[in-house]
Design a binder for these strands. Structure first.
Lengths: 351, 351
DNA sequence: GGCGCAAACGTAAACGTTTTCATGGCGGGT
DNA sequence: ACCCGCCATGAAAACGTTTACGTTTGCGCC
């Protein structure tokens, strides 16, 4: 009998009760005699009955699914993010519909629209999303949480990483450890995080090294651009004694440029990045950086969305910001006594 | 009017036609006058009508969604796999429901069952899945494709990475470049890939270095275990002149052990890993390894599943194996003239 | 002008649930 | 003994589609 899946009616017939009672039992609604419950459960198990989700959500209007709309996903950031979301979703009995890899505003809009009726709410991380985008594409009454977004909305919670504070802390740390001229390798102008990190750099310089000149070179988050930036910094007549890159990949590229030029890190120039990607611990010397708890970001985003979905929850829409921690390794020069040794990971990597 | 979404009936009423005609127009079934079509489309657009997926799939039995059940995956493998799947799914107008992070057979079973009625087919990658598991948990008639699985089934296509061949090629490569005693750091015994790599090592030794003894030390895919294995190998009275680790993380751990002991890599001992994780290029010296095209794995898996879903497609159920490429960097000692320089990545890392 | 046929269109059943409402039985309080 | 209310249960409506089938309409042809 693998040919047809059992329905609630089959269960009702076999158990000699009505479909209503079966539904009540299986949903734990009460109002059913223990004996009846027992029979129903037995029959359901025997027939391998599993409720049809389509029918269920047709009538209830709930899908128990949330959508995650992400940009072209690549690497650690997104795997960690999804991981955090997935874990939190599972804990709440929610399913996760992902839609990643859309690289333009059109693709993002299509992704959002296509989720209509499939999800109870959405998590959106996209640089293309602004207020008007949401107005046009998001179905009415569909809750959504925005990640890493500059939009200030009263309709949607926004969850951001406090990149600015992280950058500020790192630059201050460099200065407090004796560096005077801290240069900054910027990220793409259109990127929200890049902007925040730029602001953090400027704020730290203004506050803690008001006499030092700002020294900002362009970058685009790639290792290649970090390498170019590194060479550019070396060529300056007055070299900086510290470099803060807007992300780790650029810091790594910069590190290679310095190595190539025979510059000692951190002796001649200190270096720091942002993100704490896995590679950071493995370059030589290990890279000091700013850590973001990405899985937490995903988890919290999902929790906020879940709160929106829960009618009994009355927490108001708001904006929230997640702090980051600076991770002192060797390139920043503040940890010279450290002994390099194999690092333990919390979990085994997967094949 | 953000309060209620329009239904097909609203459209029918406004357009002064029946719901059947609206359905026909919107699904392009023909049998409708061009003028009527025009009116219907206009009204539908005006009301922002979007068909309800639940109702639709209730009646058609199709969800246009595929499920991906994955183990507790970390890092690159996960993100690349999802990436490949997602891209291919989008190309076919399919949605992707992911369920990862289940670490036991019970969790896997629950994940599979919960997809019942939500998906048209599933992609399953889990060490807990075998024939009896599928029989018990997979709903009848639900197509599925198994990834990285030892099961031989006539009901499901299986898609594997040819880890064995990759391992064999790498060990042969080491031997062909003058190494005699190649040691192997094994992975977890229960892991399918680890088993395959073990077999590849044995096969290569048997064929290309029949006189050399097998030298296998235990590991569990963690860096930590690689480090321990490295120390163990150093302590052997007759040290190997090459080490092949079953994955890159262990190779990295081993590399640290060798560095700590003042052993020159690849001068004294050559080293190679498996996976080509991002870190491999960044350790010093860069790690030679075996590359797996993970995104391709995901893409092909989805394509096979899509073929299963398409009733007009008659390709028969079968097993398929994906080759891997060896990546020669510096630790294997076959590329001594190489100049370290910043590597370009195809894509910028995110954030 | 009547007949038949095809095209356009409408009616209603069906999908598998949840949920409202009605019904019957039964126990307890007066 | 009677009535009231509660509890377990069942019947049926409702959710929004698709689609099989029936009905109308227009048209050509004898």
């Amino acid at each position: 009998m693998t040919t047809k899946n059992a329905t609630i009616k089959d269960v009702a017939r076999e158990a000699k009760v009505s479909v209503a009672s079966v539904s009540r039992v299986l949903n734990g609604m009460g109002g059913v005699t223990p004996e009846t419950q027992k029979i129903v459960r037995e029959v359901a198990a025997r027939l391998q009955y599993v409720p049809d989700n389509a029918a269920r959500s047709l009538i209830t209007g709930r899908t128990h699914t949330v959508g995650a709309v992400l940009p072209d996903l690549y690497g650690e950031f997104f795997s960690e993010l999804i991981r955090g979301i997935d874990l939190a979703a599972r804990a709440r009995g929610l399913h996760l519909l992902v839609s990643s890899s859309h690289d333009g505003v059109e693709a993002a809009a299509a992704a959002v629209r296509a989720m209509r009726g499939r999800v109870d709410g959405m998590l959106i991380l996209s640089e293309f999303v602004d207020a008007s985008f949401l107005g046009e594409n998001l179905p009415a009454n569909l809750p959504a949480v925005l990640l890493e977004s500059p939009v200030k909305s009263t309709r949607f919670p926004v969850l951001n990483i406090d990149s600015r504070a992280g950058a500020l802390a790192m630059v201050r740390h460099l200065i407090e450890h004796g560096r005077q001229h801290v240069a900054f390798i910027a990220g793409p102008k259109s990127n929200f995080d890049a902007q925040q990190r730029d602001k953090g750099y400027r704020a730290a310089m203004a506050k803690h090294a008001p006499d030092a000149p700002l020294n900002i070179v362009a970058g685009d988050f790639t290792e290649e651009s970090g390498y170019r930036a590194g060479r550019e910094l070396i060529a300056q007549k007055k070299r900086p004694d510290a470099v803060f890159a807007a992300n780790d990949m650029m810091a790594v590229g910069c590190l290679y440029a310095f190595k190539e030029a025979g510059i000692d890190v951190p002796g001649d120039i200190a270096l720091a990045g942002f993100d704490d990607i896995l590679i950071a611990r493995y370059v030589t010397p290990p890279l000091s950086t700013v850590q973001v708890r990405i899985a937490d970001l995903g988890r919290i985003a999902l929790e906020r969305l879940a709160a929106l979905l829960d009618p009994t929850d009355t927490t108001s829409v708001s904006m929230q910001t997640l702090g980051c921690d600076i991770v002192v390794r060797e390139t920043c020069g503040a940890n010279l006594g450290a002994v390099p040794s194999p690092r333990k990971r919390k979990k085994p990597p997967n094949t």
